[in-house]
């Protein structure tokens, strides 16, 4: 039976934990709003880019000499797995879920006899992958200095990835991140970065519309694609990281909300125990006094 003092100490410690989780939840909620706005305002660019690429790519894809970024390097031996996670913990299963999906993919690749290289963005993913696949991790990008993710923050990473591709250090690149759906739901997403996947043009109104108009290309279709494809990789990466940032805050908000609620439950049950113990003590003392008086 814990003493009254112990109980009191525990209650106050749980109370202060609850205050912290509550504050974290509030911070995550306001950050979430900002992250969500950023993800939404990045959408028009990515959408228009996709539209242009779908139209252009469909025309050029089957021609010989098409850019390796579009057609691939002709083999699938080495795969670069880009794992985007958060910089901070305390966000529920967010990082674990992404890493789990990435690990499943990595295992599949290794079983198929392929070489895997891992690029971590965010140190939480690195911490989890390190135990099993330390020898495969080629680099970890620390994004903890970045408050509001800007395109300029992502571009160096994209350039690095593209440089590696040009040096034929890998054939295929896949990005793992969590797509934001709502504060409660984040969808683990696996996205192929290189070669650039094209949207199916056949059942797409936008591409039809694009194909309908006869465009004049300056300098040429190939040159435009040459310029656009590397940029598309950067944009896709940027978009993934923005989604990831929103998901992280959403996951943290939910996690902190349930932590606050758990702390509340704990305080309630501890208070009940505390009050019962207090009453039991009073009763015990009364009995002692009464029985002492009777004995006289």
């Amino acid at each position: 039976m814990p003493s009254l003092k112990d109980l009191k100490v525990r209650i106050s410690s749980v109370k202060s934990t609850q205050k912290i989780t509550k504050a974290m939840k509030m911070v995550a909620a306001s950050k979430l709003r900002r992250a969500q706005e950023a993800a939404e305002s990045a959408r028009p660019y990515a959408e228009r880019m996709e539209k242009v690429l779908a139209g252009l790519g469909a025309a050029v894809k089957d021609q010989p000499g098409a850019s390796p970024l579009l057609a691939g390097s002709g083999q699938h031996e080495v795969e670069l797995v880009v794992v985007a996670t958060s910089e901070r913990g305390l966000c529920g299963g967010f990082n674990t879920n992404i890493v789990k999906a990435a690990k499943a993919h990595i295992r599949e690749l290794i079983d198929a006899g392929k070489t895997v290289k891992i690029l971590c963005i965010g140190k939480k993913g690195f911490a989890q992958l390190r135990q099993e696949y330390k020898h495969l991790i080629i680099d970890t990008k620390d994004m903890s200095g970045v408050k509001n993710l800007a395109f300029a923050d992502v571009q160096p990473i994209a350039t690095e990835v593209l440089t590696m591709f040009e040096r034929a250090e890998f054939d295929v690149a896949t990005l793992f991140y969590a797509k934001f759906q709502s504060a409660l739901v984040q969808v683990n997403t696996k996205q192929q970065l290189i070669p650039v996947p094209l949207r199916e043009a056949a059942n797409d109104d936008d591409a039809d519309e694009l194909a309908g108009a006869i465009y004049e290309y300056e300098p040429s279709e190939e040159a435009i694609l040459e310029d656009l494809l590397p940029r598309n990789v950067a944009v896709q990466l940027y978009r993934g990281l923005l989604e990831n940032a929103a998901s992280e805050q959403g996951a943290r908000m939910t996690a902190m909300d349930s932590a606050t609620r758990n702390a509340g439950d704990m305080i309630d049950s501890l208070s009940i125990t505390y009050n019962r113990t207090r009453q039991a003590n009073i009763t015990k003392e009364l009995i002692e006094i009464i029985s002492g008086a009777e004995a006289l």
């Binding site: 990045a42 028009p44 660019y45 990515a46 228009r48 395109f151 300056e218 040159a223």
Partner: peptide
């Protein structure tokens, strides 16, 4: 419209726009 990767910068009407094309 001028769209940057971060957001839609401008969406307006104009009489004419001079663009620095590659050629």
């Amino acid at each position: 419209e001028i769209v940057s990767p971060e957001r839609l910068l401008k969406d307006a009407q104009a009489a004419m726009v001079v663009v620095p094309g590659a050629d």
